[in-house]
Design a binder for these strands. Structure first.
Lengths: 226, 226
DNA sequence: GAGATTGATGAAAAATATTTCATTCCTTGT
DNA sequence: ACAAGGAATGAAATATTTTTCATCAATCTC
């Protein structure tokens, strides 16, 4: 099993109980109590499921998930909330949540929900990546920007996939050569630059905002324009 | 939109309300009041979502879904129930349900759940094809026969995908040239034969049973060996 | 069973895709 | 403003994939 869960919950008593119960069931838990910190942790690490309290002292749980979704993070989210009103649930689902559990709850129910949400990704593997206006269709093997289809050569596709799985992060040429090209010994080459150039010409048509930025002396970064 | 929903609910008053509300939101509804009948209808038709009452006069909602799942029917299921106890929800999810809504509920919540569940299938597009011992991983772009990974060139991949989507059916060279190669005018060529040959050498290793058969004068057929 | 037709296959030719290289264009620091 | 180093790019060289072609093997017809 050993799935990675991120618990975002400010109430330390409840957090402690959840941690104890789910750890006991074999999950790897990380706990963050502040909304802002959570966003960073969620963007950095690679979690299989987020358990998010709706009400947090600084950044609201809803906003966290909306932000993550906008960044292209598709990890399943289970909201926890003392607000049990139907309308609240609807808001949670609309914000990009996958499930909603009202407090108080019994642990068997939490565990069942967690199990159900974790089961999904393997059944329903992601077939699409999204970063802002840019989509990558993993099955049709093409990119799409605002309904404009973009055909990619194999290497361009792999390169873009790599970048889109790590949006808003600086990616060095070395990382790309090792991971996309599988080069074990890094020779002096501008392979990456050439392909980044080709990609740019394809994904930023005519007057569109560029999405791949250079970080001088370091590498490249794929971000939503602005 | 025009998604096909099957409502399995014995209480005609509630059923009428749901029918009215969801039809108004643009869904195509079919309603069945008996559990046994529901099973038949669900197995026959092709629905995008089942809304199932937990408590039915004859066959229980839980049993219906368990039976469907056992039959390999993977359609999303939303349980409705007057039984709101957490433990009941857990039972519903364990039986293969995807969501659980306690009665009474407001229609906006029902609609949001329906929308969320319907959104999934498009996200969860099929990522794997299988014909007997042969698997085609649409995302990793490789075939697998009994855990042996088989790398395919782009054209080979498209050709095998086409065949695997039409197993046990005779496929003519003309169909392949038109659909896989997108040739509008069919010239005299043995392109198909060459690529069938390459595929065969890859998918039938050493002593394995061949899976691609020639139908003299007609074309080819992909079948499970024996 | 001989001749004709259809299918299989190795290797050459053609088309595509990837990589290298030389040059030009920017950015940054002095 | 200038020099130096990093980044972008067009075009040539290389490698890979696809297609064609020639030949051989298998199957069917009479």
């Amino acid at each position: 099993m050993d799935a990675q869960l991120l618990l975002i919950e400010d109430d330390h008593e409840i957090a402690g109980e959840i941690l104890a119960d789910l750890s006991g069931r074999g999950y790897q838990l990380t706990h963050v109590a502040s909304g802002r910190k959570a966003l960073g942790v969620a963007l950095e690490g690679s979690f299989d499921l987020l358990i998010v309290d709706r009400k947090l002292p600084d950044l609201d749980g809803l906003s966290i998930v909306e932000t993550l979704r906008a960044e292209g993070v598709g990890v399943p989210v289970l909201f926890l909330s003392a607000l049990g009103a139907p309308d609240e649930r609807v808001r949670g689902l609309k914000a990009g949540g996958d499930d909603y559990l009202a407090k108080p709850f019994v642990f068997t129910e939490l565990a069942a929900r967690v199990e159900a949400l974790l089961r999904r990704p393997s059944e329903r593997r992601e077939t699409k990546l999204q970063v802002g206006p840019l989509e990558l269709d993993l099955i049709d093997r093409l990119a799409r920007r605002k309904s404009r289809d973009i055909e990619l050569l194999p290497r361009e596709f792999k390169l873009l996939e790599y970048l889109m799985r790590r949006p808003s992060r600086v990616i060095t040429r070395e990382m790309l050569l090792e991971d996309v090209w599988k080069y074990r010994f890094l020779s002096h080459t501008n392979l990456v630059d050439v392909h980044i150039g080709k990609l740019r010409r394809k994904i930023d048509a005519n007057g569109e905002m560029p999405m791949i930025y250079n970080v001088r002396g370091v590498g490249f970064i794929l971000r939503v324009p602005q």
